[in-house]
Design a protein around this nucleic acid. Structure first.
Length: 111
DNA sequence: GAGGTGACTGCGA
DNA sequence: CTCGCAGCCACCT
């Protein structure tokens, strides 16, 4: 726990997100016990592409299911392409039926 | 050591 | 309903 940096904790949780599912920054932050630091989760994603194996950051979106960080993938359409490739429908940079595809580690990992 | 940044969130007007 | 502001904390320069 304490041996891993906050980033590493975020990376591991994000990598646990099943294919075809999505999660939110706040959910991950809350699971890590830093609900108030939801920004840090997003910030961690900033370095996600520098880690290996790469973190499926496309599965992580904001509380509204909006692809806020799409621009950080290099191309604005990249994130949407990746999501659709996994079976997640995206419309106007927003995940379709987000609440249904939502994956909360605090609940899923609790079982 | 101190300051600035940020892929968010929640509440208020 | 939409827009704006403040809080939050780890990492970087």
């Amino acid at each position: 726990m304490d041996k891993l940096s906050f980033y590493d904790q975020v990376y591991q949780v994000v990598r646990l997100i099943p294919k075809g599912r999505v999660s939110s920054y706040g959910a991950i932050a809350s699971y890590l016990g830093t609900r108030g630091s939801s920004r840090m989760v997003g910030y961690a994603m900033n370095a996600a592409h520098t880690t290996f194996p790469p973190v499926p950051a496309q599965r992580v979106v904001n509380r509204n299911g909006l692809l806020t960080g799409k621009f950080h993938f290099g191309s604005a359409d990249m994130m949407q392409q990746l999501l659709e490739n996994e079976g997640v429908k995206v419309n106007n940079d927003k995940i379709v039926d987000f609440k249904n595809l939502f994956w909360d580690p605090a609940i899923e990992l609790e079982l």
